[in-house]
Amino acid sequence: MENSKRRFLKGTCALFAGATGASLLATVNASEGAKAESDIKYAMIHDETKCIGCRACEVACRETNQVPEGVSRVRIEQTGPFGEYPNEYYHFSRVSCQHCEDAPCVNVCPTGAAFIEKETGIVSVNAWKCVGCQYCIAACPYKIRFINPVTHAADKCDFCRETNLAQGKQPACVEACPTKALVFGNLKDPTSELVQVLRANPTQRAKVALGTRPKLFRILAKSGEVIL
C-alpha cells in the first residue's frame, strides 16, 4: 500500500514536470515563430534631390493597381520655381501612404477593413470589409486616403502588396522611376539598400510629432533638378 502511494506521487510529479517542460518548449517555439514572421518591415525613401518631377511613378501606379482616373495612390507635389533664371528649380515631394506603425486609420476603422499586415508592416485595406464610412479618411493626418469610385471602398498605397510585391517585384513606382529617386526595402535587413541609404543620408518623415511612426522617409532637396 505504502509502495503504491509513493509510486502514485512519483508518477504525478513526473507528469507535471513533463507537462510544464513541454508547454515551456511550446511557448519558446511560438515566440521564435513570431520573430521569424516579423523579420520584414517595409519602408520607402523618396530622394528629392534625385526626383525630376516626371511623374512616371504616378503613371506606373495607376496602370499596375488599376487606379481609376480622378483619384491617385501616389502624387508628386511640386513647389517652385525657386532661384533666378536661367537656374530656376522646383521641389518635388511624394504624397502617399506613410505606412505608419501606429496608424490612425487602422485604429478608427470600425469594421477592421483597414489593417496592418503583421508580416510586412504594410498598412492596407480589405475592400470587401470596408463599408465606406470614411472615418479613416478623416483620421489620416497625411490626407492620402480616398474612396475608390469603382470599388466604393477606401483605397491608398499598399506598396503594391497585391500586385508587384506578390509577384516578387519592387513596387511599380520604384520600378518606373528613371532617376532611382525611390528606394524600397526592408528596414530590418541591415544589408538592404534602404538601410544603407538611410544610414548615409539625413532623412525626414512627415508629422513625426503625432506619434504615428511613419515609414516614408524623404531626403530633402536643395535643388529639384538633375544637372544635364
Binding site: I52, C54, R55, A56, V59, A176, P178, T179, V226, L228
Partner: peptide, 10 residues
C-alpha cells in the same frame, strides 16, 4: 510625357 523625360533623365 514621362517617357519623354526618361529619354534623357535615366
Amino acid at each position: 510625357r514621362s517617357e519623354l523625360c526618361r529619354n534623357c533623365h535615366s
